[in-house]
Design a binder for these strands. Structure first.
Lengths: 229, 229
DNA sequence: TCCTCTTCTCGAACGTTGGTCTAGTAATCG
DNA sequence: CGATTACTAGACCAACGTTCGAGAAGAGGA
């Protein structure tokens, strides 16, 4: 080999410094190159850890150890990242390998959906955009298929699917929307004369929210089943 | 400073040009001074006409004929404007002067709520923030009071209130979220082999959406009533 | 070994945003 | 008439999403 390239003085590691030892071996491809999947995964982690306000392209790139503009080679806009991150977490909603009792499947899917959104509290706030990702569509397909097995057809089927989906979305949104629960509670209590019924209902603990969601879901499911054609 | 008081050339209408004739008489107080209400009303109009993306403090101030910084005398941040605008439109949800049949009142309130949100399609997307405005609280109070009249108590009451509110929120959100309806429809149809049930449901026309909402609401209401303690 | 093509990365910079600071002006009150 | 209050414009700031063009790295061919 050539040792003639004495004085590894090169500003850059290439061209000069033929010494193999001084060059990091394939450092460039050591870490997998940036991929869309890595970006999305890191975005989800960032959202979970630091909240949506901290999700900037620069900060995301920093966490990935790349320049901010590099992201735009893999993704067109920031909204793309948001859309992808949103769909990504819905991949965690468990989907039974084999369809069982239709009502159980529906309940399981909806509660799983709900749980995932609470696990990523930033998600419901991002829901104001079309949800056409594969994970979302697969779950919606499963939901509608289960309802079809339950005897729903035509408009009843569509109404049941949308009704359930809308219920879970609204529930997750209002659950994660409020700041500290005490604030709203105190505010209502402070104006008890204007909102007597609300004030009387009183404070809702951590546990009760899930119970409320469960009851509402049961009611909705029962009502839809009853009004089935 | 400026000794050249000659010529009405002054960049500003004040200080220079002592001639009363050149000054518009009381132009300052001619239009009512900026108030929080005017800001909110203009913000709603702007959102309706140009969409949420165009709601910037500068643009809003421009429409009001004032400087951008002036807004900050009446309002702390842009989020304040958003919160106020959101609550403002809920003032349009009709509230019966005298409570009637509880079920009718509930249906009327929920459908009115839904209609208002569809009339201001930007509203559902802003729902990811605590809703403590007087208009929202008054309607929630009315809803809960009507349900209480219907015999709901305790946890059932809370579940019914939240269930209905969440349903209407989710419905409005998904309704306004999607871009052009055809896009989603075409996308699903293009992957018909993966989403057979969804593809089979087919396209939903303008009319059907309201019908779906109505059916879901009926089902939910029936279910909640049935599971009432 | 050299050249070229494609794939991928990045620094610099642009235009715009929400928000603040400075420095006022018009009306009002004592 | 002087001081106080209500209100406003312009300049300014840090931060944002995004564009642009310059390149580096690897594959393939001759």
């Amino acid at each position: 080999m050539n040792e003639s390239r004495a004085g590894g003085r090169g500003g850059r590691s290439s061209g000069v410094a033929g010494e193999v030892w001084l060059r990091e071996p394939r450092a460039y491809r050591a870490a997998p190159p940036l991929t869309r999947d890595r970006i999305v995964a890191e975005a989800v982690a960032l959202l979970d850890e630091e909240g949506p306000a901290r999700l900037t392209m620069r900060h995301l790139a920093e966490r990935l150890g790349v320049g901010s503009t590099t992201l735009y080679w893999h993704v067109r806009t920031k909204d793309d990242v948001l859309d992808l991150a949103l769909d990504a977490i819905f991949g965690d909603v468990p989907l039974p390998a084999r369809p069982g009792d239709w009502a159980d499947d529906v309940r399981g899917l909806i509660t799983g959906w709900y749980a995932v959104m609470l696990r990523h509290p930033w998600a419901p706030g991002l829901l104001g955009r079309p949800m056409l990702g594969p994970n979302v569509l697969a779950r919606t397909e499963f939901l509608q298929a289960a309802l079809a097995r339950g005897g729903f057809t035509g408009v009843d089927l569509a109404a049941a699917t949308h009704g359930l989906a809308n219920y879970v979305i609204g529930s997750a949104l209002t659950r994660t929307a409020g700041g500290p629960e005490d604030v709203a509670d105190q505010h209502v209590r402070a104006h008890a004369e204007e909102y007597p019924t609300l004030a009387a209902t009183g404070h809702l603990g951590e546990q009760d929210w899930d119970e409320l969601f469960r009851r509402g879901l049961s009611g909705l499911l029962a009502g839809l089943t009853g009004s089935r054609a």
